[in-house]
Structure formats: C-alpha cells, structure tokens
Design a protein around this nucleic acid. Structure first.
Lengths: 215, 215, 215, 215
DNA sequence: CAATAATCGAGACGGTACGTCTTGTCTTCAC
DNA sequence: GTGAAGACAAGACGTACCGTCTCGATTATTG
C-alpha cells in the first residue's frame, strides 16, 4: 500500500531519527479508537488528537487510516491463530479453524471486517491486506492441507485452493454478512460438516458432540 | 433500513403526493454514479446534482446513500439469477451458482461488494441488506437443496444451512477479497468440487470438462 | 408594498371568498412570534405552522414577513399615541412625545425597530413603512406644530420639518442604537431641552422637575 | 463582538500563524459585495468564494457577516469625518456634520445603515457597533461641544448629550428612514437650524445662504 | 342546484445557505 | 530535521427555509 516506509528503517543520513515511540503510539491509538467506533467514522484528525500527535506526522508515514490499522493489526499480532505442527494435520486444521472463529467473534474480527469493508472502496487497501495478511494465512493453511493429503486421510487429487475456500469462506461470510453468529456451535459444526464430506477421520474434539443434522 | 417510506404509498391525507418519477430518477442516478466510482466516494450532493433534484428530497426518503443503492439494486432487479424449477434440483443449483458468479463478476457484483463494504460501518445497512436481499436468496436456495435432498441424490441428513454456506461463501470471499477471479473456470470448478465431495451426480454441463485437480 | 390585496376586498366573481378569520389569525401569530424572537429569525414556515395555516395562504396575500408585520402593526393599532386636540399645542406635543417614548420602550418599539432593521435590506419595505405609518405620524405632528406656531409660542419662521426631526429623531436613535434608554428621565429631558432652546413656555408636567444639566 | 481574535495577534506558541493577507482580503471582499447588494442578501459562502478562501477561515475569525463588515468599516477608515482642532469649536462642529452628511449620502452611509439594520436582530452586533464606532464618535463630538461651551458661544448649562442627539440624530433618521435626502441643502439647513435655536454665531459657510424657512 | 372558481391545509419539490467537520497541505516555533 | 500546533482551501455533511407546486376538500357565487 505504501511507497512510504511503514516499518522502521535506518535513516539514510543525518537529522533527527524517526521517533519509534510515536509510531507505536499512533498504532495503539488507532486500535483504541476502533474499539469504540467504525473505521469509517474514525478520522485521522481524531487519531492525531487522541495520540497527541501532529496530523502531519501521520500523513508523513501512512497514506490512509486503513493503512494505519493494517499496520497496527499486524504489528500487535492481534489474530493469534497458530497452525500447530505437533498435531496430526487434520487436528491442526480443526484447531486452527476453531481459534480463528473464536478470534473473529471478538475484536480482531471487528478489525478484519472494518479493513475489508474499507477496502471495497480502495483497491490499494485490499491489495495491501491480501499481501500482508491474507496470502500469509493461506500459505500456512495450504501447507497443513498438503501435510494432511500426504497422510492419506483425504483424497490425493483434492483441489487444495478450493478446499481452503470451502473450509474458511463460510467464516468470512458470517463475519461480514452477520446472518448467523460466529459461536461455539459454528466452531463445531463447520469443520465437522466439511470433514464429513471429505470422509476424513474426525478429531477427538469433534466426536464428543453428535453431528448436528439441521440448522 | 427505513422507518421512512421507501416505496411509493398513497398519502393518507392532504399534501402534494410523492413524485414517482423523481424516486426512480434518483435510484437510476445512484447506480449510474456507482458505475464510475465507489459508494464511499459518491456523495449525496453529487447524486442530487446529477439527478437535478434537491438534497432534501433525497434525505426525505432515504437515510443514507447505501439505502438508496439497496433500493436501486432490488428495484432494478439487477441480479437476474433465477432458480429454475424446470430442471432437476442439482442442475438448477449449478445453473444458479454459475449465473451468480457471472453476475458478480460484473456490475451487480460491484454493487453488492460496495453495499457490504459500506455496511461494515453501519449496522442498519447490513441488517437492511440481509432482510431485503440476502435472506430472500437463501430461502430460494434452501428450497432447491430440500428438493435435491428429497430426490435422494444427496445425503438425507445433510445440514442444509452449512451446505449453503459451503456452496456460496467462496463466491462472496472472492468478490470481497479479490484474491482470485470470478471467472469461467471458477464457475466450473466450485460446483464440481462440492458436488464431488457430496458424491452427487454431476450435471452434464460439468462433465464436459475434466475435473481440475489443482490451482 | 403590495400589488397583492392586503386588506379584505370583495372577490370580483365566484369562488370561495377569503377567510377573514385566517387573515387575522396570521397577523396575530406573527406578532406573537415577534414577542419571542427577531423578525429576521422568524420564518414564514414558522408563522404558517404556528397559525395552523398553509404556507401558500400566506404567500397568496403577503410578499414578505415584514409586510405581514407592518399589516399587523397597523391593524392592531399597536402604537397608541394620539395627538390631543383638547390641549394647547405645546402641551399636546409633549404629551405625544412622552407617550411615544413610553410605547417605544416596550413591544411596539421592538416591532418598529425590527421593521426598520429589516427594511434596510428591502427598499419595498421601507417605502411601505413610510407610506403606511411614518408619513401619517409626521402629518399629525406637523399639524400640531402649525397650531403651536399659530399660537405665537414659537417663532413664526420656524422650519417645521427640521423641528420635527429635532424633536423626534433622538427617540428613534435611542430605539435603534440603544446607546441610552427610552426611560422616564428621557421623556422629561428631551422635550424640556428642545422647548428650552425654542424659548417656548414649559408645560406644567415639565416644570415639576428641575431641568437636568448634564447626563 | 468577538471573543475571537479579530485583529492580528502573535500566536503564543507553535502552530502556523494567521495569514494577514487573507484577513485583509476577506474584509475588502465583504465591502466589495456590499457595494452591490444588502448585507442580509450577502452570504458568508459568497464572501468565501469571491475571496477564494475557505468558509472555515471566515468562521474561525468572525462570528457573523456583520462582524466582518464592522471590522472592514473600521479598518478601512471609511468614514473620514475628522473633528478639526484648528477651527473654532462651532465651525468645527458644522464642518464635521457636513462631512458626515456627505459621507452618509454615499457608500459609508450604506454600510452604516446595513450594520444598524442587521443589528436589530442581533444584540451582539449592535453592542459591538456602539463600542467600536459610535461611542468613539460621540466622545469626539462631546469634546468639541465642551470646547464650544467653554468659548462662551453657547449656554454654559447646556445638556451636552441631549445637544449631541439633537444635532446628529436627524442625520441617522434620514439615513435609516429615507423620508428625505442627505443632500447639500440638508447639510446647510440642519446646522443652521440648531445653531439658530442655540443663538450661536453662524459660521461663515452657513451665512452665505439665506436660512431656509420651510421644507 | 349543478357548475365554476377561488380558498384552504398539507406537504413534496428544486434550490440555496447554513455552520460544522474533515481532508491533505502548509508554515511557523521548540527541541 | 522531527514533531506539535494549528492555519488554510476545498468541499461534503445533514438541516432549515425559500417560494412554488400539486393535491383533496371546502365554500361561495353564477347560470
């Protein structure tokens, strides 16, 4: 998104160096404001005021408020959904999906929704978000699915990209459309449903509950 | 979305009646502007000016520009994706998905993306959009899936809501995230993939091409 | 001010006749509103609403809110400052001035000030006000001064118009500039001052108090 | 009128300093517009546009368009009616009155009338106008009258404030009521009339013409 | 006594301006 | 040379009125 230097770099020459504390302060302030209102309703002026920072300081380093939020989101590692390598692939994926749903039910989901929303009117933002967040997550999931496929629990010929979308897109749809909650039940039912279709062995955590049959 | 009267009604008593032509003109103008720029960058002032209408006339009948666009979207029946009742359920669903993907690749997709984007900062909008558009479509799809299930081509115990999300959510994810195109190939691969998982008989239109195996 | 028919007239042919009660109601409502706020801040819409009358009804009969107020002002005979013919001219004039000051210290003064204020941006209004109010009052005063002159109490060669301005203009200046109050003391001092300059005999009501010497 | 800083001041700390050129430009533009239309019909938007200035810049420094005009009026020293100290008091006063009448017959009179008119609906404005303009002029005249009184040409016991009103109020009445012109004849007759009443020696410039006897 | 004609309340309409807010740039001073 | 403060041009916000208009309903006079 940024020709501008978003992350800290060494200053190429003399002069007062960029104040790291200021940078972090702005990121934190942006997230704080996002807890109370939508990204669209937040203004750069408000961020500057709340952070006790000049507007120019923000404009010097970021191109838009969405860019700030993306930085803050990534920097503060807000979505904590590791893909576990110590578990069998199938179990790791279920674990990952469940953590993601739980995360997206809260503030990180709010942030992701706001960014995607804002991005619909700004190609630069959506591109930045894809490159700095979404592609990374896909890579992690892709690797897990490949491991899973190698284990023989699922069909060797499976279309990985399609499977990824089938597994994760419903989470994003609920996040953005809000037609149904990102709750505990969903965290059980969604993996169970897809694993069932795949004829893959159900991890223990999914067996405990009976498979739901209807909405 | 609207306590306000969005559709034309008979005035209960005195007063100059609402001008239907004006209403339609505003809807059309809003869509025209949306062809050129994002919903966020469109201003109500611009709509009023382009339509040759007073701003008050717009504010009298709509609460936001998103509300106008939802009205316009629904009124002009821009998404023309009928669920065919003359086809076997499985075929009807594939037909429907393919038309939807084709539509969403174009202007209607642009509109839907803009509405969902704007809606992330306005709960009223997302609710209105769900109630006036999304729930209706789900109902149509739900009915088709029930017909399909009754035909015995798919498992009687299938979770219909989950199946719906698995079938359609990937379309919305591509629309909103833009990580991959809503193209001809996707229109083949997505139904083929899910039908494959379901062990459901592939409609003729999907057999012609070989099932893709990887991205 | 009005090509329009301001006072009730007989309709030249058929048709529903003008409603006299409505006319009076509008005038009264306008004055009521003027008690609370300035003429400039009053809107025709507010008058219509407060009177329970359609806007068109007002526009049919008056060209501006100032026109309404002038009508109301004249109609309700709000300034009650008769020139007494049963008194000697000098006394009648003092009586008249004192009543005028007393009146202008209250609501009628408020109205006159508002009309003159509004009139500064509307030549039609000031003309109408002159013709329907100010010239009439001048004529009455002029006649009294002529009577006074005939009595021999003042110089036969006196410039009547100038004397009129010298007597009355200070009242209007205080009304409009507000640099000093239109109070009891002023009602004594002003006539006493001018009568002193004229070497005219002081009426009894002015003798009671000693002539003030300075402010 | 202004809690706001109307005249240029040094900023107490950081921040871009106020642009003096912009301030002057706004004042000039306001007067320019006033040459063509009434103060009431002028809009702040029009001033901003004509001056090529943002509306916020105007609102930052002035509270109303009347406040701008008062500033402009005072700043540009538009009414040039000095009280001459090199002349005998009586002559200086006549000189002053005649210049004032001449001025008020033109654009400065137009401005003063507009301000007083607008002020009738805005107590803040009339107060500001009194304090920043009217009281100053009264002080100058008062001093001259005191000098005159000291010279022995007029009665030692004269009420100065009353005399001031008697001398000047007729000018304001003509300005605001427009019942008679502020012309050359008036500039002769008004001082001649009052000087006559005062039995004060007529300055040479008034002797040249015969005293008018009636209108 | 129906037809005609004007009035009335209500309120939609195209406009315009309001005063506020935000944007992104800029210009100063303090460090 | 960074950074806080804040002025600045631009222009959209949502509201309020403007003066006009279009309704249905009403109320006289005229044919």
């Amino acid at each position: 998104m940024n020709a501008k230097v978003t992350v800290l770099e060494k200053p190429r020459s003399g002069g007062r160096p960029r104040n790291e504390a200021t940078r972090v302060l702005i990121l934190r302030t942006a997230l704080d404001l996002l807890k109370k209102e939508s990204l669209q309703s937040i203004t750069i002026e408000a961020i500057a005021k709340a952070a006790g920072v000049g507007k120019a300081t923000i404009y010097r380093w970021w191109t838009s408020k969405a860019a700030i939020v993306i930085d803050a989101f990534i920097e503060h590692h807000i979505v904590r959904t590791p893909m576990r390598h110590d578990l069998p692939a199938g179990e790791a994926i279920v674990d990952h999906m469940q953590h993601l749903i739980e995360q997206y039910a809260g503030f990180p989901g709010q942030i992701v929704a706001q960014i995607i929303g804002e991005a619909q009117s700004n190609p630069t933002i959506i591109r930045e978000f894809r490159e700095r967040f979404h592609y990374g997550r896909r890579a992690v999931v892709r690797e897990a699915i490949e491991r899973w496929r190698a284990s023989g629990e699922i069909d060797r010929d499976i279309d990985i990209e399609m499977l990824m979308d089938v597994l994760y897109a419903p989470i994003y749809l609920r996040l953005l459309m809000g037609h149904a909650p990102l709750d505990e039940k969903f965290a059980q039912d969604l993996p169970a449903f897809v694993f069932g279709l795949l004829k893959a062995p159900l991890p223990a955590r999914l067996k405990s509950k009976k498979r739901s049959r209807s909405r």
